[in-house]
Design a protein around this nucleic acid. Structure first.
Lengths: 113, 113
DNA sequence: CAGCATCCAACACGATACTG
DNA sequence: CAGTATCGTGTTGGATGCTG
């Protein structure tokens, strides 16, 4: 790593750009997060439905990514006190605000791949 | 991995969404790609300028990510037949078309972190 | 039903040294 | 100036089996 030069004024706008983007990419960048978020855009889904809607994901990864999305405040986990257990996942307002961005990413990908 | 059920019609729109997004995220998702792309939005930059504009990156990673961006057609590498050598990097049209999307990602990140 | 625990492989990324 | 080469590490994610 090179030494950082104090006269090197990489300006504030650039750092904020990097920073904001890193945050967003970390939030949606997991291997299965886009798939999960997209499935949830049309409403609440039960764990088993979500799982069956993304057949390629292992349960381990599904749960891990759901937990991260929850921790980042993008989805809400709703546990019903029933037997057998029922758990549903739903986008939060923050999560919903990502929808147009996900759409943009998808559109760009479809057009350019 | 669960066995894929042939009656499980995960519909075509969903698969295209995932697919397009995966493609886009792979294109911009590298650790330093957003930083590189952003630096290039205002025009051609020389290798050493780019390097000094992102002091945290090692040369190894910078070159690797530049090569991938080039392979994906987002940037163009221009080598001048001079001594000492000079190399410049520039966004392609495809790369430029990402700018508004990067801006969205940055804005969302700034607002929500 | 909705997970968790364990083990393991692949890869991304960093540090450091060297070069056409 | 603009890179390569080599080595080492931490994280990501997959396979498999078990559980409140």
């Amino acid at each position: 790593m090179r030494k950082e030069n104090s006269t090197n004024t990489l300006n504030k706008r650039q750092m904020e750009m990097d920073c904001g983007m890193s945050y967003t990419l970390a939030a949606i960048g997991g291997r299965w997060k886009p798939a999960i978020l997209w499935r949830l855009t049309h409403g609440k889904l039960r764990y088993s439905v979500l799982r069956d809607a993304i057949p390629q994901v292992t349960e381990r990864m599904l749960v891990l990514q759901l937990r991260e999305l929850e921790k980042d405040g993008l989805i809400k986990r709703i546990v019903y006190a029933e037997v057998p257990p029922r758990v549903e996942y739903e986008l939060t307002a923050k999560g919903k605000s990502l929808t147009p961005i996900l759409q943009n990413l998808s559109d760009w990908g479809e057009k350019n791949r």
